[in-house]
């Protein structure tokens, strides 16, 4: 269970159908700041690897002259990972493949806006 001031934000996302984990992660170190995870979801792995992916996308996009990256999404055969960052934190949503991506994207961006 979430134990930090970020708990309400995490809870607002985890309640969506198909979401199996929500994590707030340091972008540079890939360590979990807070998380709400269903049983069996490897939070440390999602945190480290998604933060790394997000960081890579952000740096690559900047190097390619595309400016700051706001939203990131990885789709796979059996699941999706959504991420958005602010102030060196990355909000990560782990979900099943069949979800309403549009709705989750909007909810995620709203949650990120509310980060301090």
């Amino acid at each position: 269970m979430a134990t930090t001031p970020f708990a309400p934000l995490l809870q607002s996302i985890i309640r969506h159908r198909g979401v199996t984990g929500v994590l707030l992660v340091g972008e540079d170190d890939g360590l979990v700041v807070d998380s709400v995870l269903q049983v069996g979801v490897n939070g440390a792995a999602f945190a480290a690897l998604t933060a790394s992916l997000y960081r890579k996308a952000r740096r690559s996009a900047e190097a390619a002259g595309l400016g700051r990256t706001g939203y990131f999404e990885l789709d796979a055969v059996d699941g999706r990972v959504l991420a958005a960052g602010k102030n060196e934190l990355v909000f990560i949503v782990v979900a099943e493949a069949r979800i309403n991506v549009g709705l989750l994207r909007v909810e995620l961006l709203k949650a990120v806006e509310r980060l301090p």
Partner: peptide
């Protein structure tokens, strides 16, 4: 360096 992270190292 930044290509990796403490989280990845731990993993």
């Amino acid at each position: 360096d930044w290509e990796s992270s403490l989280g990845l190292l731990q993993l």
